[in-house]
Amino acid sequence: MAMDLFWAFLVGGALCAVGQVLIDYTKLTPARILTAYVVAGVALSAVGIYPKLVELAGGGASVPLTGFGNLLAEGVRESVDEKGLLGIFMGGLTASSAGITAAMVFGVVCAAIFRPKQK
């Protein structure tokens, strides 16, 4: 278990450190960096690297935005195998629907509890 925690911390920390370096030393906006992380997760999943990283690091690789990209890619791959061409449009949303729903529900709950002030 200690090695699992070590790898999760190392991989998740490395992903966060790369994001922080991009914020500090480039003119990329946070939105572009987040989008790049999702696209990187899709690309690494397409070549078969990201599933191995998830196997090694567990939550350290599946929780960051690159993990969301991997989830989208895996969902599309499975849906295309089952439904053919229509799976391209359905797979990513079907695979990530629970995470998207949770983000929306928690966002609404937080907005109802905490009243933000206008700046």
Rank of each mutant, 00 (worst) to 15 (best):
Gly87Arg: 02
Val47Phe: 12
Ala2Gln: 14
Val105Ser: 12
Val38Ser: 06
Ala112Asn: 03
Glu55Leu: 12
Ala73Glu: 14
Trp7Asn: 13
Ala17Gln: 12
Val38Pro: 05
Lys27Leu: 13
Glu82Gly: 03
Phe114Tyr: 11
Ala112Glu: 00
Gly13Ile: 10
Gly99Ile: 11
Ala57Ser: 08
Asp81Trp: 10
Gly60Ile: 03
Leu28Gly: 01
Gly19Thr: 00
Ala36Glu: 00
Tyr50Gly: 00
Gly41Asn: 09
Ser62Pro: 13
Glu74Asp: 07
Ile49Lys: 08
Cys16Trp: 07
Ser97Phe: 04
Leu72Ala: 13
Met1Ile: 01
Gly84Asp: 00
Ile113Gly: 00
Gly67Trp: 02
Ile33Ala: 13
Gly99Ser: 13
Ala111Thr: 07
Met104Lys: 13
Ala112Gly: 02
Ala95Gln: 06
Ala103Glu: 08
Pro51Phe: 02
Gly41Tyr: 05
Leu44His: 06
Met1Asn: 07
Ala36Ile: 02
Thr66Arg: 09
Ser96Phe: 05
Leu86Pro: 09
Val105Pro: 07
Gly75Arg: 11
Asn70Gly: 08
Gly87Val: 01
Val105Tyr: 05
Ala102Asn: 15
Leu22Thr: 09
Thr101Gln: 04
Glu55Cys: 08
Ala43Gly: 04
Lys117Phe: 07
Ile23Trp: 08
Thr94Gln: 05
Ser79Gln: 14
Met1Cys: 04
Ala73Asp: 10
Glu55Met: 11
Val38Trp: 01
Gly48Pro: 01
Met90Ala: 14
Gly67Val: 03
Gly58Leu: 00
Glu74Asn: 08
Gln118Gly: 04
Met1Leu: 09
Leu22Ser: 09
Gly58Asn: 00
Gly13Asp: 01
Gly48Glu: 09
Gly87Thr: 04
Gly92Phe: 06
Leu65Ser: 11
Pro64Ala: 10
Val21Tyr: 03
Ala43Thr: 08
Ile49Thr: 13
Thr66Gln: 11
Ala43Val: 15
Tyr50Thr: 02
Leu34Asn: 12
Glu78Asp: 12
Leu53Glu: 07
Pro64Asn: 12
Gln20Asp: 05
Thr101Lys: 10
Glu74Gly: 05
Gly12Tyr: 10
Ser62Asn: 15
Glu82Cys: 04
Met3Gly: 10
Ala46Ser: 14
Val38Gly: 00
Phe68Tyr: 15
Ser97Tyr: 02
Gly59Leu: 14
Met90Asp: 12
Pro116Ile: 12
Leu65Cys: 03
Val63Asn: 14
Gly107Trp: 07
Ile49Arg: 07
Leu22Trp: 05
Pro64Tyr: 11
Ala111Lys: 10
Tyr25Val: 11
Asp4Pro: 00
Leu85Phe: 15
Thr66Asp: 05
Ile88Cys: 12
Arg115Phe: 09
Gly58Lys: 08
Ile113Pro: 06
Ala8Arg: 03
Thr29Ser: 15
Gly60Thr: 10
Cys16Ile: 13
Val54Arg: 07
Leu5Ala: 09
Tyr50Pro: 04
Ala95Trp: 01
Gln20Cys: 02
Leu65Val: 03
Pro116Asn: 07
Leu71Ala: 14
Ala102Cys: 15
Ala102His: 06
Ala46Ile: 05
